[in-house]
């Protein structure tokens, strides 16, 4: 059974799943590159809270679409909501702790990496 032989709705769904999965991998990759490349904890927290959250969002959306209309995809939606609420707060907590530790944000021209 090849993709072309399916009804259009299922085809669209499969294509959407693959696209969401690709998006998830891309933004998580951005997050990983950011976490490794960026100069200090504040800058890294950007990618942790944003690119990674979006990557997780895409990934979970792909999962929900795969599971279809059943109880488990409700749990995926809950998970998605939970991650979107807690991830920025976690990044805030980490950045705040760094700030309270007296960690000065890196600026251009600063040697410290």
């Amino acid at each position: 059974m090849a993709l072309g032989s399916l009804d259009p709705v299922t085809t669209a769904r499969v294509v959407l799943i693959l696209a969401l999965l690709a998006g998830a991998l891309f933004f998580t990759f951005v997050s990983m590159v950011g976490v490794i490349r960026l100069p200090d904890v504040y800058a890294r927290a950007h990618t942790a809270s944003q690119a990674d959250t979006l990557g997780a969002g895409f990934g979970l959306a792909a999962v929900a679409l795969t599971l279809g209309w059943q109880g488990a995809s409700v749990k995926t939606a809950i998970l998605l909501f939970f991650i979107f609420v807690t991830n920025p707060t976690a990044a805030h907590a980490v950045a705040r702790a760094a700030f309270e530790d007296g960690n000065v944000p890196w600026t251009e021209g600063d040697e410290r990496r």
């Binding site: 976490v35 904890v41 927290a45 997780a56 980490v94 702790a97």
Partner: peptide, 21 residues
């Protein structure tokens, strides 16, 4: 710094959640 590690582990945790899903 310790915060860097916390942050990295937090990102890893989010990844793990997606992998589990």
């Amino acid at each position: 710094t310790m915060q860097d590690r916390v942050l990295a582990v937090n990102v890893l945790g989010t990844n793990t959640v997606v992998i589990l899903a």
